[in-house]
Design a protein around this nucleic acid. Sequence first.
DNA 1: CATGGTTTTTGACCTATATCAAACGTATTT
DNA 2: AAATACGTTTGATATAGGTCAAAAACCATG
Lengths: 208, 208
Amino acid sequence: MLQLDALTSLKRTFRRGEYLYRCGEHFQSLFAIRTGFFKTQVLHEDGREQVTGFQMPGEIIGLDAICTDVHTCDAVALEDSEICEIPFDRLETLSRELPSLQRHLHKIMSREIVRDQGIMMLLGSMRAEERLAAFLLNLSQRFSARGYSPTSFYLRMTRQEIGSYLGLKLETVSRTFSHFQEHGLLNVRVREVEIMDLIRLRSFVSHT
Amino acid sequence: MLQLDALTSLKRTFRRGEYLYRCGEHFQSLFAIRTGFFKTQVLHEDGREQVTGFQMPGEIIGLDAICTDVHTCDAVALEDSEICEIPFDRLETLSRELPSLQRHLHKIMSREIVRDQGIMMLLGSMRAEERLAAFLLNLSQRFSARGYSPTSFYLRMTRQEIGSYLGLKLETVSRTFSHFQEHGLLNVRVREVEIMDLIRLRSFVSHT
DNA sequence: CATGGTTTTTGACCTATATCAAACGTATTT
DNA sequence: AAATACGTTTGATATAGGTCAAAAACCATG
């Protein structure tokens, strides 16, 4: 594990709005987020954007670029952030020597595939309220896993970015927040979210 | 590469409708499709299904299960098919000795992530006509890569399965096929598709 | 701390797709 | 070959979410 540390010794900081990488750039390294918050997005030629994910500390970014050695999306800092660069060829070399590292890498890639499946499910067969509930519960769970409150957090992204991620227009996102608030499920003050009724919010997404 | 052959020596056949694996089953092997056609799907507890992909010969299935050692979706044969089983722990062992195999595995996993990004884009920000056009062009490209006609092929899946994959109802899929036919873009006779105007179909999905 | 720009909320109205329903085709079984 | 089940097409109607617009809240900057 010392060797792994050596691998990830290159650190860099990004100001809010800065690009970690852009679609089309040559791929060399994965990036581990140490602090901060990122989004990844794909841009259509006609200007439409699709946010493909929001990443927080401990998560790995850039896996999509392995297959062609070219980044297939943009990664943008949503707040001032710090990342570790992981040169991919060195990671591959090292993982040939460390089976546990190899296994770990495979699990990370597989987890990304499972995450994407979840988003397909969300975009393909959920209604607006279910999508937003699923989104908030996912954030809640990830904040919680990092030692933060599962019920009270600050949204780093705009309504338009949430909408793009969820396949909804920003107005629909805003209205759905308002509905949830009216029904006592949560309190929202713009970017500040407090979940009042986790149970009921959960029943929204998987209404058995 | 001889060693790889030894790895994939376990072959099995499946009749149409049979399950290669089911959600929740223990994961041990990846599967390479030799002949035939599969779909993968996730089922909600409330009965809604989401088709997450259609797989054809040469493609690898089961990558989602690596992260938890449990399959997270069903894989169902859409026609009589033959697959190669690839025991995953042996694949990992072998890929530690063969850097080119290691690289190949990583590229395959990454390609799956990129594929999923494309579906997110499709589900999140395209209209019905664009979705179906993108779907048909994707099939066209994949048939073509396997030496079959890019313009004339047989659909192995039902309208309902296409709809589930594209986040549309089967009636919408059917109507959109009819529209395309009325506009001279293609001829459809139920499962038999003939693309008459590839160029115009392309301009549908990436209308610059 | 005033200013200009962005983001969010809310309302009124519209449209793409869903829903419901019926007829029709196509496969499978007997 | 008839019977039955399943998949597809098409029409009429409903609705969730999109669009357009304006006001309000927020926030960065000089």
